[in-house]
Simulated scan of single mutants.
Amino acid sequence: MSTETDNKHWDIFCAVVDNYGDIGVTWRLAKQLAHEYELNIKLWVDDLHSFSHILPELDPSQTSQQFCGVDILRWSSPLDITFVPGSVIIEAFACELPFEVTESLIALKKDNKATPPLWLNLEYLSAEAWVDGCHALPSLQKSGLKKFFFFPGFTDKTGGLICEKSLFSEREQWQATPDNKLALFEQLGLQAIDKNDLCISVFSYETEALAALCELWQDTQKKVHLLIPKGRSLHSLSHLLPIEYELIKPGQHYEYKQLTIHILPMTDQQGFDKLLWSCDINIVRGEDSFLRAQWAARPFIWHIYPQEDDYHLVKLEAFMQVYCDNLAPEIAGHWSALNLAFNQGAQNRVKTLWQHLDSVNRPLLQHAQEWPVNALNDADLASRLVQFVKNS
């Protein structure tokens, strides 16, 4: 691994678990590392079909293809492509490396003339306090190799957050011109949306809280447009839809007094970012969408993935504490209660809290606009990764 080419060669392995969450994070990271640091990134993915939903140009039948300067390789078992190690291997979210890869690492360790790649496990994002103490710790494997645990996070003691260098300026330019969002809505096939209407994007899991809010939005003074793709969140509204779920197509819309439900087409990551930038409130799930909602500088609700014994609520509380650090207590309390009620599926409570959202909306929006710069902590995830590898 002594040549410059080898030093710039990184392998990232991603096992797609939740359709778009894991691959969404690793695809953004791979693109940023290739573009901003001119690294030769090879992204190994075990489910190219799911990947193609956020990268429509991708051909799931191909073993190897390149987009945005990243080599995308099909991770099959056994591998269709001979693995040639570079200087860094990243296993995303504790996915287990292919047998051929671990065997090659062991062989390199036994060869005194060769240096094995630096092995990193990119962990899930969390705001919990224990992350600070666990970030970048090594773990000795049975093979004798060391694996380092790299934790994204919200403090300078963690691995930071994924954020492209030009993202905030691009978002600010987009939001400065209201016509941009109207042009985007037209491009997505969404009709009859006025720039002064309330637009809410939804990318959540199933929850009765969403159905309860839809009942509320039907009788608001201001027109509400709910922008939602086919998927888990739309299943929560099946009782409202006039046709069978299988017959619903992107571009269709359904009116219920002041509420209009618009069916979104799937889009790539750039299009999804612009959608979040264009809405007044975003309801998101998972990790990738959760972080992009923060970068959108708009108020949001995070529908966190449910876990046993309600441990997901512990993670939610940890994030809310960090996010609300500089908020006035009454505003922080209201926003936190709304997020908690949505995650608990508390129908009556989420409706009550939403009805009082107007009283805190202006300072909440101001906080959402200031948060991205504060959360970034001077260095993003890609920058901290590159620096960690350099120091190692």
Results as ranks from 00 to 15, higher is better:
Ser2Ala: 13
Thr3Pro: 03
Glu4Met: 13
Lys8Asn: 12
Lys8Gln: 09
Cys14Trp: 05
Thr26Asn: 07
Lys31Leu: 03
Tyr37Val: 01
Tyr37Glu: 01
Asp46Gly: 07
Asp46Lys: 04
Asp47Gly: 07
Asp47Ser: 10
His49Ala: 15
His53Tyr: 13
Ile54Asn: 00
Leu55Gln: 14
Asp59Phe: 12
Phe67Cys: 01
Phe67Ser: 00
Ile72Val: 14
Arg74Leu: 14
Ser76Ala: 15
Ile81Val: 12
Val88Lys: 02
Glu91Ile: 03
Ala92Glu: 04
Phe93Lys: 04
Cys95His: 03
Pro98Gln: 05
Pro98Arg: 04
Phe99Asp: 15
Ser104Lys: 14
Ser104Arg: 13
Leu105Arg: 13
Leu105Ala: 09
Ile106Asn: 08
Lys110Trp: 07
Asn112Gly: 14
Leu122Glu: 03
Leu125Gly: 08
Ala129Ser: 13
Trp130Asp: 14
Asp132Gly: 05
Cys134Tyr: 13
Cys134Met: 15
Gln141Cys: 10
Ser143Cys: 09
Phe150Glu: 01
Phe151Asn: 03
Phe154Asn: 08
Thr155Asn: 07
Lys157Ala: 11
Gly160Asp: 03
Gly160Ser: 03
Arg171Thr: 04
Ala176Val: 06
Leu182Phe: 07
Gln187Cys: 06
Leu188Cys: 11
Leu190Trp: 06
Cys199Asp: 06
Ile200Lys: 04
Glu206Asn: 05
Thr207Leu: 08
Glu208His: 12
Ala209Arg: 03
Leu210Phe: 05
Thr220Ile: 05
Thr220Val: 12
His225Trp: 03
Pro229Tyr: 08
Arg232Gln: 12
Leu237Asp: 11
Leu237His: 10
Leu240Tyr: 12
Ile243Leu: 10
Glu246Tyr: 00
Leu247Ser: 14
Leu247Ala: 15
Lys249Met: 09
Gln252His: 05
Glu255Thr: 14
Lys257Ile: 04
Lys257His: 12
Ile263Cys: 07
Leu264His: 11
Leu264Glu: 13
Asp273Trp: 00
Asp273Ile: 01
Leu276Arg: 00
Leu276Gln: 08
Ser278Ala: 15
Ser289Phe: 07
Leu291Asp: 02
Ala293Val: 06
Arg298Asn: 06
Pro299Val: 10
Pro299Lys: 10
His303Gln: 15
Ile304Glu: 02
Tyr305Ala: 05
Pro306Lys: 01
Glu308Cys: 02
Asp310Ala: 14
Tyr311Asp: 13
Leu313Gln: 10
Val322Ser: 08
Asp325Phe: 09
Leu327Glu: 08
Ile331Lys: 12
Gly333Asn: 12
His334Thr: 02
Asn339Ser: 00
Asn343Trp: 07
Leu353Ser: 04
Asp358Glu: 15
Pro363Asn: 11
Gln366Met: 12
Gln369Tyr: 07
Pro372Phe: 08
Asn374Leu: 14
Leu376Lys: 07
Asn377Phe: 00
Leu381Thr: 00
Leu385Ser: 02
Leu385Lys: 02
Gln387His: 12
